[in-house]
Design a protein around this nucleic acid. Structure first.
Ligand SMILES: NC(=O)c1ccc[n+]([C@@H]2O[C@H](COP(=O)([O-])OP(=O)(O)OC[C@H]3O[C@@H](n4cnc5c(N)ncnc54)[C@H](O)[C@@H]3O)[C@@H](O)[C@H]2O)c1
Ligand SMILES: NC(=O)c1ccc[n+]([C@@H]2O[C@H](COP(=O)([O-])OP(=O)(O)OC[C@H]3O[C@@H](n4cnc5c(N)ncnc54)[C@H](O)[C@@H]3O)[C@@H](O)[C@H]2O)c1
Lengths: 224, 224
DNA sequence: AAGCGCTTGTGAACGAGAGCACAAAGTGAG
DNA sequence: CTCACTTTGTGCTCTCGTTCACAAGCGCTT
């Protein structure tokens, strides 16, 4: 029983590591070699104690009285996130959003490589998007196996999402990023993250509505 | 002192209300008139006790022994989220992502109306996207005031995001949905939500890496 | 080598959220 | 009317996460 505590890094910490990584990358580009938790926390927009606790989960990579070595920390965080290797990614659904994603340069810069594009529409299959030829849906299983894809992006309409998801999982994909507004049901071992525009906007609307009534004269009077 | 508890709805609850609303919409379309917390929770993918607690924050809209009236609950949740009114939205940055967003039908269906598109590139300004003519960046303030925009979407490169954000805030926008991978600094009263592709993928990569070593023969042997 | 100032790493207090379990409140049958 | 059954609304506990505050540790100066 090694009490390394390496076993479980809190989910909240994992979600922030990419944030730190980005801030560190910027600092590194600026030629900064050493950074304190206070500075890095400010750059990432978090509390410095939280940042220190997060980083301490990975090990003791700081130097008291000095701070953290930027490049070394970049390496350690990258390693922890599994970014020292490249991850082949497949995008399913090449409508408006799928096109944008396929053309997005931000993938490759962090170790993700879009290896294949898949769509169900015969008019789209065969066309060239971002340097790749769009494959038919039938080829999905073959592509996943041939390319060793473990991470997939779903950008199909909501109705098709669960179906596509099932096929991805059956083919061995165990991490899915879902843009369709639907609840995906998956086996225990599959990790799904969803990005939902509509939900974000609705949350913003909630806050807007909360603010608006405060400006009315009536509300002012009621507080007296 | 009205003990209405109307004052503070937990953030976690607000984030789930759109989920419930979507599930309720589907049920309503299917002709379902009444739903129990158990059923709705399953449809939304959450624990039923959590759902009941969330809904009880809005008021006592259920009937014991029966459940919730679907249409009535749709109305109450919509009202709470501020979706009974239309929100004019402006999209800044019409590259790949901005085009996809502008063409996305999911906005209007929930009370969000894209009123204006803004870009800095002279080649893009003046073109027609999704039925709207793209306006120049200079017109930003005027558009926001004229259209009464309170919610803005930033889809510019990261470098331009803070600058655009500052101008939006100065013009009176108080809710921002940011797609650029950058930390926006805003005054207290402005609500920012960010959607970050790259972060989501990195979190997936972390989990993939955690899983991978478990499949090696050595790990298998170690468990015996 | 000793002292001083700075920064990390972490114990501990605090707060928010998840989920259990059950009383309260409704429906419908007899 | 009463009883059995269903489902809501909520008190309570437990877990997870955040933040404070400070001892421990490091380097620089004298
Ligand atoms: N466009 C946006 O900005 C945006 C924003 C948020 C969410 N979304 C969501 O993302 C998804 C895609 O949006 P979009 O605007 O690109 O839609 P779209 O209609 O433009 O594209 C959908 C694509 O999926 C393909 N497709 C349909 N069924 C398929 C299947 N079974 N297998 C593979 N491909 C299939 C279609 O041929 C089409 O090319 C939708 O669920 C939408 O709700 C889009
Ligand atoms: N494309 C994607 O799938 C994707 C995914 C995740 C995140 N993002 C992020 O979204 C943003 C946009 O991505 P994209 O692929 O559409 O990039 P893009 O380069 O295709 O588009 C950027 C657009 O913003 C405009 N612009 C630049 N400076 C501006 C300014 N100051 N004011 C107004 N407009 C300005 C440009 O003219 C261009 O049209 C980027 O920050 C990117 O990192 C994109």
């Amino acid at each position: 029983m090694t009490s390394h505590a390496k076993q479980g890094i809190p989910a909240a910490t994992v979600a922030r590591l990419p944030l730190y990584l980005r801030a560190l990358g910027t600092l590194s580009d600026e030629g900064v070699t050493t950074v304190s938790s206070e500075e890095l926390a400010a750059a990432a927009g978090v509390n410095s104690a939280k940042l220190r606790k997060d980083l301490s989960q990975l090990g003791s990579y700081g130097t008291r009285g000095v701070g953290y070595d930027v490049d070394y920390l970049v390496y350690q965080v990258s390693r922890e996130l599994g970014l020292t290797q490249d991850w082949p990614v497949v995008i399913v659904g090449l409508g408006h959003l799928g096109h944008a994603l396929a053309n997005y340069g931000g993938f490759a810069s962090r170790g993700f490589e879009v290896r294949a594009l898949v769509d169900a529409d015969p008019d789209i299959v065969g066309t060239r998007v971002a340097g790749l030829v769009v494959s038919p849906l039938d080829a999905l299983e073959e592509i996943i196996n041939a390319q060793g894809v473990a991470i997939a992006v779903i950008a199909t309409p909501a109705m098709a999402a669960q179906d596509v998801c099932d096929r991805l999982v059956a083919s061995g994909v165990s991490s899915i990023l879902n843009f369709a507004p639907s609840m995906l049901v998956v086996p225990e071992h599959v990790e799904v993250r969803k990005v939902d525009l509509s939900i974000e906007l609705q949350i913003l609307a909630f806050h807007e509505q909360r603010k608006a009534p405060l400006l009315t004269p009536m509300a002012q009077a009621a507080t007296s």
